[in-house]
Design a protein around this nucleic acid. Structure first.
Lengths: 158, 158
DNA sequence: TATTGTTATACTCTATAACTATA
DNA sequence: TATAGTTATAGAGTATAACAATA
């Protein structure tokens, strides 16, 4: 190994933090997926709807990239959302290979109406915190997002 | 609604934070599951191994509870780990209904040997941070774990 | 020839319901 | 009758490989 094991930043400490991080991510995403009730769509599907609500419209490829799933997975997710009447696919003007996905009125409704009850479990968890902790929570989410998702080499070259 | 929408702690802000939290959890657990290579077992399976390494031995029910999965899911996970020769099931002394699960030597090896390369992607993410950020990261993981997993009513009475 | 999206195939994760054995 | 675990069944999430259409 290239580094001694003394003091903070040792590989043992890194491993310990990684271990706690793994459990946090695995377990809380499990809970999130199951506590996703009230509406009949899954957490993953809702996430696509929320993305479209912010972006207006997007190609399947762009959504897949944002959500970190492979293109075939996004095709299936969009199939389900389209069947449910929540999104629509249209030809891309100017590039026949591409497709533009937009929210339908029903889909937009669901996102807006849902906002509160939707992120239900998460909102309840947030509201259960001490108000003083709220800012810390906000910062924690940002830091972890930057560390795990937004760092340039988070998706290494293949 | 029971609360006005002024200032910090408004429901709009809660919803916004919940939304960012949802993406953090969903996307980073997705990445974690795929970057889980090097060994041939999945992130979920590894998590069980790590738990057994800390606890010595445990019943399927206790592991399921800790991992927040249903009993049948744990049965299947243990089936796979047992087939792979990583854990062993034994009769519980004193209560014939229960089962005691322990790591095999191979399983223990895998956990220990793996520690570093195993939590691979997470460790690399942690090591990519500014050392000054390291403590903040540690605190962030703790805060989120407490908020999302360890709060008493995180699992409401059914 | 490269890119975008889809179809085909396969496997893991996950749950609920029903069943077995023991307490 | 209640509890621990398993089996049966079903569906969502996920990936890689192969294909079609367009650029």
């Amino acid at each position: 190994m290239t580094r001694s094991e003394e003091g903070s930043g040792s590989s043992a400490e890194t491993a310990e933090l990684a271990s706690r991080m793994r459990r946090l991510l695995l377990v809380s995403s499990r809970i999130l997926r199951t506590r996703t009730s009230s509406e009949q769509i899954s957490a993953s599907q809702y996430s696509v709807l929320a993305f479209l609500d912010r972006s207006g419209s997007a190609t399947p490829g762009a959504i897949a990239e944002f959500e970190h799933v492979s293109p075939p997975v996004m095709t299936r997710t969009l199939d389900r959302l389209e069947t449910a009447g929540l999104v629509a696919r249209a030809a891309h003007p100017g590039d026949g290979r591409q497709v533009l996905v937009t929210l339908t009125a029903t889909g937009a409704d669901l996102v807006h109406r849902g906002r509160q009850e939707r992120d239900d479990w998460l909102s309840s968890r947030i509201e259960a915190t001490d108000p003083a902790e709220r800012d810390a929570l906000d910062a924690a989410v940002d830091l972890l997002t930057r560390t795990l998702i937004e760092r340039p080499d988070s998706t290494p070259p293949r």
